[in-house]
Design a protein around this nucleic acid. Sequence first.
DNA 1: TTGCCCATGTAATTTGTTACATGATTTA
DNA 2: TAAATCATGTAACAAATTACATGGGCAA
Lengths: 210, 210
Amino acid sequence: MTQKRADVEKTGETDRSALPATGWAVLGLLSFGDELSGYDLKKWSDRSLRFFYWSPSFSQIYGELKRLEKAGYVSARSVAQETGHRDKRVYVITDEGMAAVRHWAREAPVEPPVLKHGVMLRLWLGHLLEADRMREVLGRHREYAETMRQRAETDGADTRAGEAGAPPSLVAKWSQRYYAAERDLADAMLADLTELAELTDRDERGGRRT
Amino acid sequence: MTQKRADVEKTGETDRSALPATGWAVLGLLSFGDELSGYDLKKWSDRSLRFFYWSPSFSQIYGELKRLEKAGYVSARSVAQETGHRDKRVYVITDEGMAAVRHWAREAPVEPPVLKHGVMLRLWLGHLLEADRMREVLGRHREYAETMRQRAETDGADTRAGEAGAPPSLVAKWSQRYYAAERDLADAMLADLTELAELTDRDERGGRRT
DNA sequence: TTGCCCATGTAATTTGTTACATGATTTA
DNA sequence: TAAATCATGTAACAAATTACATGGGCAA
C-alpha cells in the first residue's frame, strides 16, 4: 500500500523536459511534420489518438500548444484566411521539439494503460440489475465496439498524414484488432448471460438449487 | 465538433443524486453489504475495480466517503481497535444509498470506455523509434498483460466479498479474457514487427524499394 | 432563419494525484 | 533496527472538463 514517491530529486529547478502525457501526444502529432492549427490538431487527434489514447478537448490542446511554445518545442505563426474568417494560428515542431519527443519515446518509462470501463462498472453491479438491462447495456457496447472497429479501419489511413494509400501503421492495425476483441468480448459475455439464464431456468423447473 | 452541452436544466438546485463515477464505484463496493473502512475499500478496489475501472487513491476514497455521508448514502461509526491502533471509521450503505446505486445502475446513461494506452502512444511514434526499443516496450507490455490476467484469475473470487468458492462473476471472467486478449494483441504486433523487418531485409538485399 | 462548421481562447470548476503528518505493531 | 502494514486525513498541485464569448460563412 506504498504511496508512490517520484524518484526525482527535488532540486528547485523545473525540469524543462517534463511534460504531461497529453503534451507529448500533441507534440507527437506535430512530429509527423505538418504545420497545423489547434483546430486541425483536434480533428486529427479525433481520428488517430482517439482509438488508443483519448482525444483531448479543444481547450486542452490550446493550452498544451502554449506550453510547448514556451518550452521552445514548437513555433507558431499567424496566417490570414482568404475569406472573412478569423486569423489562424499554425504550429510547427522545432528541432529541439523533435529531439525532445524522440528522447521521450526512446527513454521515458512507459506508464501502464489506464482503463475506465463504464460498461463493466455497471455490469459488476449485477446484483442490482435485471438481466434485460444487462443485455441492453452489453448490446449497445457491442455496437459501439463494432463502430469503433470500422472507424479505426477507415481512419487508419490517416495515421500517416497525407500519404494516400500508405499501408496501415502497426498501431492502426492494433486498434482494429483491439475493437474487434472488445466486440467479441461483449458477445462472449452475452453468451455467458444466456447460459446462466438457462441454468437458473432448469433449476427452477427441477426445483433444485446449486 | 460540437462542444458537449449537458442536458440538465440549470435550476439553482444541486442535484443530490449526481455523483462522479468514482463516487458510484465506492458506493458500489459498499452495495455488496459489508461494513468497511476507507482502508478496506482501497484494498478491495485494488483487487476488483482495478481490472476494469482503475483504483482510486486513498485520499480520493476518503473524500468520496465524506461526500457519500453528506448525501445520506452511507452511515459511519468509529470502532476502537483492540491494540493501540488508531480508531477505525467504518461505513455501511443506507437504504437511500442502495436505492440510489440501483437507480444509477439501471437508468444512468453509460459512458463509453476511456482508454489511455501509453504503450500504443509510444509505438504510434514509430518513426522516431528503433525496432529494438519497440520490441522491448511490447515485450514488457506482454508481461504486464499476462500478470494482470493471472491476478484477475486469482482475485476473481474476491469479487463477491467473503463467499469462498463462489463462481467467478461475469465481470471477473471478462477481465481474464480482456487481459488474455491484450497479451495476444501484443504477440500479434510483435509478429507484425518481425514480418516488417523481414520485408525490409529482403528489399534491401534485392535493392528494391516498394 | 436556424443551425452547423470554422476558429480561438478564457474562466470556473471538478477530478485526481503526490506529498506530508502521525504513530503503533509486526516481521525480517 | 529498518521496513512494511494498519489507518486517516490535509494541503498543494496538476490535469481536464464544461461553459461561455465571439463572429463570419454556408447549407437546408
